[in-house]
Amino acid sequence: MEDVIRTEKLTKHYGSVHAVEDVSLQVRKGEIYGFLGLNGAGKTTTIRMLLGMIRPSAGSAFLWGKKVGPGTSDLWEKVGYMVETPSSYPELTVWENLEIMRRLRGIPDKKTVDAVIGKLRLDAYRDIKTEHLSSGNAQRLGLAKALLHNPEILILDEPANGLDPAGIVEIRELFKDLTLHHGVTIFVSSHILGEMSKFVTRIGIIHEGRLVQEINADQLEHLLFKRLMVNARDTEAVRLYLTREGYSVTPSENGNLEITGKDATDHPEHISRILVQAGFPPTLLKVEEEDLESYFLRTIGADE
């Protein structure tokens, strides 16, 4: 499938600070690429280079195979973006802020602004000055600007910031719809990892400016740690028994026993059976999967 977004050894140095170092990634058409990293990892700098806002110290970024630069204004016709906290002209209303963007983007249809206001559920705030918007609605306005012209590529920096849980779900469903039904390619950065895992198709993990791992969402399941949580009336006796049986058992912080290893996580029914036979019927038997947050911290080595 065609690479819509591509970077080649993208690098940005600020003096001795290596903000981004040799980042090479590809995003295919229709993908939702989640760009994960801690604050200061280089996410926003990478996004700014993708949008031609800052010049790479080395390497290049390409959209549809065309090199990105400050003079490539024709490229942006089909690109929607939101960088960092969305900003707007505070003395203008939501509608006026969007109308400015409609005119600057050369969109002839005057109904476009009202359509995107409806799509982002900003109807009640249409004629409100943006200085009076809550952070959640300011975020929606930022997304409305990005979606105004029905872009083919969306580049979004922390789009869920400031949104309430219902808003996050709503935006997630919107992104899914855009990719599934409109073929939109989305490059989205975030540090809200749990949320990201629910809708991205591929994940790139950036740490200290370097892309440390790229994985498909469907591969993620195989990479995540699993553990079997067990409890019984006499946990100490169960621990000794299972250890004798050859399992790796450690007490967890909440009083349960934690068993790792594929034998246990793939066949919890076997554990259940031998515990019953040994006279320790389990009161809890549950396979827990590592969440994306733990996986991320393990990948960048921050959990040590």
Binding site: L51, M53, D74, W76, V83, L104, R105
Partner: peptide, 11 residues
Amino acid sequence: RTLKDLLALPV
């Protein structure tokens, strides 16, 4: 901080 909205436009 509205400058960023003016930098990647068809204009």
